[in-house]
Amino acid sequence: MTFLLALVIGCLYAAGIFLILRRSMVKVIFGLILLGHAANLLIFTVGRLTKGVPAFVPEGSAVLGGEFADPLPQALILTAIVIGFGVQAFTIVLFKRTWLTLGTEDLDLMKKTDELPRE
């Protein structure tokens, strides 16, 4: 299972990086979203996968015994998903606004802010 997830994470990272290197803004957004997913899955996987053992204290006992799924990575991912969702929503609106204002979605054409003023 860990191996499979590692493969998925690798593919997500590769696809994400490929996409953010494209010239189209839409593809850049997709790339950023995929990178976010990859990072979330990575946290999930390195937090060690434990199947079917929720972190509940058994009745009559005061502490968790034996093996259990660590709830902290899941809490981290939940937070990261919420933040990522908000930021991505903002990015989509920003990119749409840019498209409406500049009339292009080709990132190669957006170099006005980098150029030195002409003589």
């Binding site: 976010g36 990072a39 979330n40 990575l42 946290i43 902290l72 991505q88 990015t91 920003l94 990132l107």
Partner: peptide, 25 residues
């Protein structure tokens, strides 16, 4: 135009941060 560059690079850096924090944990 400036914001596109700023936002993209910062989101990329945030996802690196997240991955690093996950591995560290």
């Amino acid at each position: 135009e400036g914001a596109i560059k700023y936002v993209t690079i910062n989101l990329l850096s945030s996802s690196v941060f997240l991955a690093a924090a996950g591995i560290l944990y």
